[in-house]
């Protein structure tokens, strides 16, 4: 399976990654090779097989609806690239 450059650019957009024109060919070939490996899955008959999401088929635990987290906003924001007055700063989104 060979991915064309438009598909590579579409995937990059979904992944929020920038792929230059030169890189498009390289990634296209590499991703196509990986998808060729993945395509071997098609050989297996999986009719009536339940997908396995957890090795133990365990379901997520429930707990009492109680507040367990304390407010650590200042601590967490101290490692942010840019924060002020309890807010994360990003470029203006609304004019």
């Amino acid at each position: 399976m060979a991915l064309d450059s438009k598909t590579v650019q579409d995937i990059a957009r979904l992944a929020r990654l920038r792929v230059s024109v030169e890189e498009t060919t390289k990634f296209g070939t590499e991703l196509s090779n990986i998808l060729d490996l993945v395509a071997q899955m098609e050989a297996a008959d999986t009719d009536n097989i339940e997908p396995m999401t957890h090795p133990f088929d365990a379901t997520l635990r429930m707990r009492n609806d109680q507040v367990t987290e304390t407010n650590q906003r200042d601590k967490f924001q101290s490692i942010a690239p840019s924060a002020e007055n309890g807010l994360y700063l990003v470029p203006r989104v609304i004019d």
């Binding site: 590579v8 995937i11 990059a12 979904l14 992944a15 929020r16 990654l17 920038r18 990634f27 590499e30 991703l31 990986i34 998808l35 993945v38 990003v90 470029p91």
Partner: peptide, 23 residues
Amino acid sequence: LYLNSRTEGFGEEVKRRIMIGAY
């Protein structure tokens, strides 16, 4: 900001796997 931070911050193998996953 998203695009440039992720593009500059991740290496090639990580990008390949993110892209395969996104696909």
